[in-house]
């Protein structure tokens, strides 16, 4: 009595794949040409039109970067900044998601504390960095604090937004099928809001790095932020750019890791194609 799925259903169910490889090659080529052209223009500009003292040049930056890494100085600064992020960022993510989830679960909690959280969010948090230095000292913990603050709110708001968008029917169904406690949270609610959660995590990555750098700008003896400020103070423009590029790479690297995790966690989502608005 089994009724087999029809062929059309099978075809419909097969994943859409087969991207246009020729097109992909073109996209990469154009991209490389664009970036390469920019650096070339920069190099020429530094020799002919603008004083290299102000804008440095790609070749100078590369030389400085190699020298920095060779001497181990830059690695040490990166290590310090990474440590600050490695502690403050996960803490902010986890507590942000946790509180956002709790707000979504408890109406009372949300009603009482929502205005307070919004008020706190109104504080320009980087302005708190000097205070954190006073409280937590000149070492890494004051920067961890700033990273945490910047990360926390973004994750909190995104998770809470997800909780408010949560489809009641999924929860009802799961509960009717006997899901409670752990199973309801980790098998239903968190997966249901995970697109929001990941948006929170990924938008907060650059802010975590900003937090660390701002903290290091205010007062520090090590870290990439310190390195940049020191270089600027000595008018070593190339080193300033080295610091900026290192930070950019840091953000990209962390984001890649997050993207990888997101891809795995959200592999159930249908691959969204580019929305076509005209024809």
């Amino acid at each position: 009595m089994t009724i087999g799925a029809t062929t059309s259903e099978r075809t419909a169910a097969v994943e859409r794949s087969g991207f246009l490889s020729k097109r992909r090659v073109w996209i990469v080529l154009v991209r490389v040409a664009f970036v390469g052209g920019f650096f070339l223009l920069w190099e020429i500009a530094s020799q002919r039109w603008i004083d290299a003292f102000l804008i440095s040049s790609p070749s100078r930056i590369l030389t400085s970067m190699i020298a920095g890494f060779r001497s181990g100085e830059l690695i040490q600064h990166c290590w310090v900044t990474l440590q600050e992020i490695a502690i403050g960022f996960p803490a902010g993510v986890i507590l942000g998601i946790g509180l956002g989830y709790a707000f979504g679960r408890s109406r009372l909690l949300a009603e009482v504390f929502e205005p307070i959280i919004i008020a706190l969010n109104g504080i320009p948090r980087t302005a708190l960095a000097p205070l954190f230095i006073v409280w937590l000292g000149i070492g890494i913990w004051s920067k961890v604090g700033v990273v945490f603050l910047l990360t926390f709110f973004l994750n909190f708001f995104n998770t809470y937004a997800g909780m408010r968008q949560l489809d009641q029917e999924y929860v009802d169904l799961a509960r009717l099928m006997g899901a409670r406690g752990w199973k309801l949270t980790f098998r239903v609610i968190l997966p249901a809001i995970s697109p929001y959660v990941f948006t929170g995590i990924r938008t907060s990555i650059p802010f975590a790095v900003i937090g660390a750098i701002v903290g290091e700008f205010v007062a520090a003896t090590e870290g990439v932020g310190f390195f940049i400020r020191q270089a600027a103070g000595l008018f070593r423009t190339a080193d300033v750019f080295v610091g900026i590029i290192v930070l950019m790479l840091m953000v990209i690297a962390i984001d890649k890791v997050a993207e990888l995790i997101e891809r795995r966690a959200l592999r159930w989502q249908s691959t969204s194609e580019h929305v076509r608005i005209q024809g």
Binding site: D172, L173, R175, L176, M177, G178, A192
Partner: peptide, 27 residues
Amino acid sequence: LNTKVGYVPQESKLFPWLTLEENVAFG
């Protein structure tokens, strides 16, 4: 909550993050 009933909603409402088998196994 009456957990001794099964419920089939208007839209299928399969949990999109679970595979077909995991969905059927949920209860």
